[in-house]
Design a protein around this nucleic acid. Structure first.
Lengths: 139, 139
DNA sequence: GTCAATGTTTAGAATAGTTCTAAATTACAT
DNA sequence: ATGTAATTTAGAACTATTCTAAACATTGAC
């Protein structure tokens, strides 16, 4: 169980004010194991822990944490954004049925040599998503 | 320039009625080189060619074509869906600045061995997206 | 501690992309 | 040609997200 101070320092070192809401959300996000959450999920979790926070703040905070490099945003489903507390290099399983993400450790997937990025541009990131379905879902 | 008949047959062989709208949209999609389109883009293109088609039909058709294996849907950006006329195995560049997709030919990227899919499930697809930004967009 | 200045949060409205609905139209087998 | 089933449509509805501007909290100077 990390002390409150840990989160306050973490937030401050990212260049953000450690407000009540940001501290509370950081606790939910970074207290335990790595997580993959949607804004709505995190908001509901906050509500069910009786935290006083608005949905708008959850969105703002997730984006600010992402900007600050504390989270990584992942596009697997066009309907919602996922945020990953693991910002190390790794890739994802996407379990289509229940809309959940899982990590694929780095090393499991290796990318061969890529074409150069056009002049004036650079590669920002490489995302691999392995989508998993029910095996009886044949076509 | 492929004949009208080509598209009619293509649509029919996918198990769909070759309606005026589906034929027109198939022409836009499959007439020339491989394309990556959003629903809105295809709709505007149809409008500017004076086709009489509704946005709802564009959405329906894109999904039906996808179901039928004529298109592949790609999630790169949580705000919109992209549809790719190239259904062969390959991966994508995503040019963040202008929201455009580009193909990475198969062979450029190789995936090492993956963990087994859990029992009762299987791998549906593997998508690699290489996101490209402006190089002056540093952080 | 108090205060002012600045940054943050909030509820609710607004927006964007997409899906739904039910009425009108079209396709096609007979 | 006709009837039935499939398709299309306009517009409403919906969902995730962002915006707005007023209320509130945090910080640093005193």
């Amino acid at each position: 169980m990390r002390p409150n101070n840990y989160f306050i320092e973490y937030i401050r070192s990212a260049g953000l004010c450690p407000t009540r809401q940001r501290i509370a959300l950081a606790k939910l996000l970074f207290q335990g194991d790595d997580r993959h959450v949607t804004a709505e999920e995190l908001y509901n979790e906050a509500l069910s822990e009786k935290m006083k926070v608005s949905l708008a703040t959850v969105y703002n905070t997730l984006h600010q944490f992402t900007e600050a490099g504390m989270l990584r945003e992942i596009s697997v489903d066009t309907n919602r954004s996922y945020f990953d507390t693991n910002t190390r290099k790794h890739h994802h399983f996407y379990f289509e049925k229940d809309g959940k993400l899982g990590d694929i450790p780095d090393g499991m997937i290796s990318i061969g040599k890529l074409p150069e990025a056009p002049n004036g541009t650079k590669i920002k990131c490489i995302d691999v998503v392995v989508t998993i379905t029910d095996s009886n879902n044949d076509y």
